[in-house]
């Protein structure tokens, strides 16, 4: 590895010191590379707040739009092509290109940034909500209807609760995506944690690495929090049903061995 010095690779000791410097940047403020400005440590907090704010606003608006739409389409069983292909299209459009497109056509700023992030967040939530509603057993819906539930009652008491785990799966995907993409917020005029990463001439390589570590931790935290939320909103009866099916699956593991030894 030491030989890679030419293209920026460095030895283990230097490597450690780089990371050490980065961690130091996260916890203690210092003068900027260009001088005159204090950076790092507590000066990162406004960026963190902005990062979370931009992500939360975008995710919130995306949920408010995509969940009702997904429920509605799923309940009616219409628009399957739209609801499902929207996530394929969403994946094919790179978030960076999308942001650049917003900058080129609408300019920079918090609102435009959140527009782009909302667009980014909608597809997984919409598709998951749609699929979540559609995968509710038709017999359950039939039984609900047969007992005299109206369309809204069926959505509220059967389709929505049963689809919740999947819906939250979509929200979780989008949340992580949005937090990750908010990192390039400074390119669109919102000073998020991506600022030290992108403006390394001001923050230095320690700032670049330190902020990268912070963004990574933030994304992982988001994932963990939303995974916990997803678990929390899964009705107990559904967890039991899922447990029943996994235990059934486990059941044939020993059987397999019996076959292969015979």
């Amino acid at each position: 590895m030491d030989t890679g010095g030419a293209n920026g690779m460095i030895g283990p000791l230097a490597l450690l010191s780089q990371f050490n410097d980065a961690i130091n940047f996260i916890f203690h403020s210092r003068d900027s590379v260009t001088g005159g400005v204090r950076i790092g440590g507590s000066h990162l907090l406004p960026m963190l707040a902005r990062h979370v704010e931009l992500s939360a606003v975008s995710l919130g608006v995306a949920c408010a739009l995509a969940i009702p739409l997904g429920l509605w389409l799923g309940h009616l069983g219409r628009g399957q092509l739209v609801a499902v292909s929207v996530s394929n299209v969403g994946r094919a459009v790179p978030s960076f290109a999308l942001l650049a497109f917003f900058v080129a056509y609408l300019g920079t700023g918090f609102t435009n940034a959140s527009f782009a992030l909302i667009l980014l967040a909608i597809p997984p939530i919409l598709t998951n909500t749609y699929v979540g509603v559609r995968q509710v057993d038709r017999e359950i819906v039939d039984a609900a209807r047969g007992q005299g539930m109206t369309g809204w009652e069926i959505v509220r008491s059967a389709e929505l609760p049963i689809a919740l785990p999947l819906i939250f799966g979509g929200v979780r995907t989008s949340a992580v995506n949005v937090v990750a993409t908010a990192t390039i917020g400074p390119l669109i005029g919102v000073v998020t944690l991506g600022d030290p990463i992108i403006n390394s001439s001001v923050y230095g390589s320690a700032g670049q690495l330190g902020a990268s570590i912070m963004v990574a931790v933030l994304a992982l935290l988001t994932e963990v929090i939303f995974a916990a939320l997803q678990r929390a909103v899964t009705p107990k009866g559904l967890r039991l049903a899922a447990g029943a099916s996994t235990s059934r699956r486990r059941f044939w593991t020993p059987k397999r061995r019996a076959y292969s030894t015979s």
Partner: peptide
Amino acid sequence: TGVLYTIPSLSFFFVLQPITGRG
């Protein structure tokens, strides 16, 4: 792999740079 998947690519590039260099 889930953790790797969750880390934003941008941070990943810079966290990797001290180890694998630019490129």
